[in-house]
Design a protein around this nucleic acid. Structure first.
Lengths: 205, 205, 205, 205
DNA sequence: AATGAATGAGTTTTCATTCAT
DNA sequence: CATGAATGAAAACTCATTCAT
């Protein structure tokens, strides 16, 4: 009751840790629910429920709904980083890129149902007024830029000309096949287009 | 390029003609505003205002907001049909497909700002509950299917194997580059990826 | 075109007659639709449609929705008058009252589905603010009063004491059985209670 | 006799208790206002005002207007149960039935002004489309069925033949006299018909 | 008189955000 | 920090009534 400033200590099973866990739960719930229902169709209450947190309490962790969107985006960024970190362990840039495609295809069921989490989010946020204060309209684009940068790095290492352009082609291929697979509700489309992307990568350089 | 108060109004119109004109105005306004702001962020009042029609009067022409979404979709279908009809006049299927890419690239400014009208609509509608009555969740997908069917026809005529797969690749390429151009706010991306698609078409068969 | 004041002549296939026919059609439609859907749930457009009259045109014949309610009520009054006129031809007051019960029971299917036309209308109109200008809150009650008066006349002729009270009992019996038959959706209830009313009439005097 | 801001509020209440009190206040207000104005003429705002609750807050307690109608109905059911429970303490079934009539007559002022709460509600709800989802069209009828069942139980105990038929006659008598008293705005009618029902009960068996 | 169209007020409902405890 | 409850600003939709031919 009186140790409110004692929490810098590493003993982590404290209220602070419980709090951090709740925040993580809310972030994960936001990522999932926003992906499945879209930003506009998701109510704070939906996320609260998915995270098993009382509605009123959400605002202790996230001041606004947009903050939750940002949190979801940070979650997607973290997942992307985790993936590229893992791929970076592979010695060959071509193998890394192929591994990226594999990862995409492995998510085909989700993509066929809800699209690419980042891509659909980007499309939705892009509809927002860019002049709005605290605008989130480019927030998802940043995640895409990060993916592009990583891919461009691989292409550069591969020694192909215009690595940025190749990165765009690869990521556009992913976004395109996700959108189509989603629209047509066809996970198989992801598999087939994934094969094509791999062939394309193999033929490079 | 904006056509919200298009000049289709007949000068010496009967009431019926004026009414039809208003319906067309509303349809065009719906197509435009829904594209720019997205379905969920668009209020009926926004469309009414763009069409210069009093809000209450909108309901004389369209019973629900979803009816306006459908109208916008039919507008996009009509535009697609007009485009393919025109391309069908070309003698060579490869030229027709190249013409399609040209048309896409010519829309690069709009795509970079708001994405592909049909693609973004499909992504948004796909978030809806498929079990909803009178569901619109697959409505935009139909327009995409129509485009796929036309493209597959051209590939078939070209004599390439797996025309359906080629159609998917082409349309996915378009959706992917539109999404990226939109996210990155970069019309040039459309030009560059358009070039790539043309090269790909040229190399076929 | 110039015979607008010639319509007192008996040649009745004129515009005036067509107009009267339309008014009659609207009145009948109002009586039916208002009975089936209730006043508040009935839109002018419903009545217009049932009468095959364009909505805008309704207002030429009836200035307000309440005027249509009044028209429906007049229709019910007319039907009641037609019935009592016919019953009045019977020589015996007891037979007349029995005939009234027979008429009620013969309407059992309608009553079981929609209740007594006048009774349900009275119940609905009674909910209105009595202080409203041009109030219709007692309009249906007038029709009931007319029925009560006729019944009281028969009881008087029968020589029973308190004919007004007997009339109330009879009509209350009818309203009660109609409401119950309607609530329970049971036409047979009308038959059974009708039998009881006939026995009661037979046992009188 | 009016109970819209009834004094059920507990003095030193917790939030939960205050909340429950508010819900009760809204239920009581719904029962009263819906009785007085009818379902269709009652706006949520009317009930909110009668309960001294902000309109938006009503939806925290009741998701839809129909839920409020159901709540009102449950209130009437509760009142009916309270009444029959009390009457059940009487040793004689005839006395119980007579007590029921007494209760009805004691409500004559309300009945003469607004009709029987359940009966008028049943009549109004019966006008609804039976095919509507979550249909309330038979909800009030259930309350009437419960009353019929109780009354039939008394008649059975009394040993009269066809106890169900007697129950119908009794309840139909009540509904009929309520409707007439309401239409004619005559509480005395309730008294007189009540006397008749009592005589009828006395003469049985 | 006839008629499609217009108008505007009213009603239900949703929800992000805030508050009191 | 936690939590149920409160609030108020939208937004979709309905409809009686009026208007312009």
């Amino acid at each position: 009751m009186t140790d409110s400033q004692a929490s810098t200590a590493p003993k982590s099973s404290s209220r602070a840790a419980a709090s951090a866990a709740k925040r993580r739960r809310l972030t994960a719930a936001a990522a999932q629910v926003l992906h499945q229902k879209g930003v506009e169709r998701t109510a704070i209450a939906d996320i609260a429920q998915a995270a098993a947190v009382p509605v009123g309490n959400v605002y202790y962790y996230f001041k606004t709904k947009d903050d939750l969107v940002e949190a979801a985006l940070s979650e997607h960024t973290a997942r992307l980083d985790a993936l590229t970190d893992e791929l970076d362990r592979l010695p060959d840039p071509r193998a890394r890129l192929t591994g990226l495609v594999d990862a995409w295809v492995s998510q085909r069921e989700t993509a066929a149902r809800y699209g690419c989490p980042t891509g659909t989010l980007a499309a939705e946020l892009d509809k927002r007024d860019p002049d709005a204060p605290g605008g989130l309209d480019q927030a998802a684009a940043q995640v895409i830029r990060r993916l592009l940068a990583w891919a461009a790095g691989q292409f550069r290492e591969l020694g192909v000309p215009d690595p940025d352009g190749h990165a765009v082609t690869l990521v556009a291929g992913y976004q395109g096949m996700s959108l189509l697979a989603n629209a047509l509700r066809d996970p198989g489309l992801m598999t087939r287009e994934g094969d094509r992307l791999r062939s394309w990568l193999d033929a490079l350089g």
